[in-house]
Design a protein around this nucleic acid. Structure first.
Lengths: 228, 228
DNA sequence: AAAATAGAAAATTTCGAAAATTGATTTGAT
DNA sequence: ATCAAATCAATTTTCGAAATTTTCTATTTT
């Protein structure tokens, strides 16, 4: 991959997704301005193509826009992180309740498979001394697990909102959490969610989800992890 | 107001809001294409200004876009209406719970005032033979009531999502419901919401909200109203 | 007559440059 | 020296036209 064209292998991926991925993987810091010119040159786009992408990302709530002052990432602190996390918990719980009520054996199988993969990655992370190399794969695997957990919910509106909330909370976590949200306790949390879902215990599953997400929100206050 | 310039008096209102208002008041029909050219001429905008507005509205979920096939209103039927309504109910209930938990006397006063205005309009509607002339003011008053009800909720994310869900459900209602969502039973429904909110009865208030919104969703199946 | 093809028209998307706005720097006045 | 006005550079926003894609219509082919 030539240094002059860092996206040569991503030619089939839309420019929108490339910029969004950059945002979601921490290429910019919290509160920083996202200049159209920078996007334009960095991703080899025309001025208006770059602007349109930034507009779309603003529509998804991943960026903010100020009249005549361009686009910027949201500022992130304990309060904003917890706010988004709580909102996400509300939607994850609602989706999970619907999934548990409507999901069939096929759903159970997919959920078990997704958790198996996630547990595999997280086990490696617990054993590793450096988390960083795992973050990208873990982020994808974690998103997939929660996606499958919600997938038997019959409401397209709720599903779309949940996914968006997940993306927003993920972006904030990447921006401020030392280990991007992963901690040792994450492993039993995911196991507990799976267990209650398979038991068709809606209340228990929602409690597990809330605990999982709350613990993420609280991580910011105790940045004493010795792993990076 | 000259016929050639239907928006002369709205000069201080942004073009975005003018187009959005047109959408929200039923200027276009469900599923219909929203051609950039039409917006461009109808609202006296340049091609790219029109496109940018349509992009923003898509970001808010009020329009859909299909690659190289432009923008269009969502198709609306019993299922989509109920889906959005259920989602809105989830968020309204969450906001109401927070408001009841956090609202002070000032909030109670504003809520009472908002309900008083709403009840006034709705009383006139019950007495009237034609609903149409009241729809615009009623829509505003109803939105204000639900806005105030939610306003003591401390979560900006939840508040923004609730407002958006309200707008989307309102647009769908305008598109398909015969009386745009108003029925005689709406009056006691709003009263019940107020009553439980002031009593600080979270469960009761949520039940009242759910009943209120469910009854809207069901209206589409019984279009036997003799008023228009 | 139905299906397929080709060509024309309509609509969407993309583009790079012009216009307007903001923020920073310099200049001038008190 | 301080504050205000004016100038300048950087950035965002707006624009109308060019390029692409889709859609419609007419023609040809089976």
């Amino acid at each position: 991959m030539a240094a002059s064209d860092p996206h040569a292998l991503d030619a089939h991926i839309s420019a929108f997704d490339r910029v969004k991925t950059a945002l979601m993987t921490g290429a910019f810091s919290a509160g920083s301005r996202i200049k159209a010119d920078h996007i334009k040159s960095q991703f080899d786009l025309s001025a208006s193509a770059a602007r349109e992408i930034l507009l779309r990302l603003t529509g998804e709530g991943l960026l903010l826009q100020e009249e005549n002052r361009g686009f910027h990432l949201p500022l992130v602190n304990v309060d904003t992180l917890n706010d988004v996390m709580r909102f996400r918990a509300l939607l994850e719980c609602a989706c999970a309740a619907d999934s548990i009520a409507h999901g069939d054996v096929e759903w159970e199988a997919r959920l078990t498979a997704a958790h198996h993969k996630l547990a595999h990655v997280e086990q490696k992370m617990r054993e590793a001394t450096e988390l960083k190399p795992f973050i990208e794969i873990w982020t994808r695997t974690d998103a997939e697990f929660h996606e499958v957990l919600a997938s038997a919910c019959p409401s397209p509106t709720l599903l779309a909102a949940r996914r968006n909330a997940h993306e927003r909370s993920r972006m904030q976590a990447i921006l401020v959490l030392p280990t991007y949200g992963f901690r040792d306790r994450t492993v039993p949390e995911h196991a507990s969610i799976l267990e209650h879902a398979l038991k068709r215990d809606i209340k228990g599953c929602q409690a597990a989800i809330s605990a999982h997400i709350d613990s993420l929100g609280n991580t910011i206050e105790m940045q004493s992890s010795n792993k990076r």
